[in-house]
């Protein structure tokens, strides 16, 4: 239980970075922390002590595997995370070209 709660605390640290930090790169890092916190939570949900990795290499093997589904989900979530992080970083690069700054509080050409 403690381990689940620590994952959620890590998630909140990431959320804090996204909401409170002004530097765009730090916001991107905050997103990565949030994502990894959830991925770790997934991996821990599937964990069973004393179980083996879920790869069948012989016909009759013992079937005490860890839950393989969260691992597949984490892999998918990582792929999505790579996509969003790359897109976010490319926005940062473009914004730096246009505004010559990474400070969020100075990026306000839109009214309101």
């Amino acid at each position: 239980m403690l381990i689940f709660i620590s994952c959620i605390i890590l998630f909140l640290i990431g959320l804090y970075a996204v909401v409170a930090k002004r530097n765009l790169l730090k916001i991107a890092i905050g997103f990565c922390i949030m994502e990894y916190a959830v991925n770790m939570l997934f991996a821990l949900i599937g964990f069973k002590s004393g179980a083996i990795d879920p790869v069948i290499t012989k016909v009759d093997m013992p079937h005490n595997f860890v839950d393989p589904l969260p691992q597949a989900l984490v892999l998918t979530a990582i792929v999505i995370g790579v996509g969003t992080t790359a897109l976010f970083l490319s926005f940062i690069v473009r914004i730096y070209e246009k505004f010559k700054t990474l400070d969020v509080s100075e990026i306000k050409k839109l009214k309101g």
């Binding site: 959320l15 926005f91 246009k98 839109l110």
Partner: peptide
């Protein structure tokens, strides 16, 4: 353009949260 990038950045931060 600068405005579009700023709007999209805002949108992306909220959407990703």
């Amino acid at each position: 353009e600068a405005e579009e990038l700023e709007a999209s950045l805002k949108y992306m931060v909220m959407g990703e949260i």
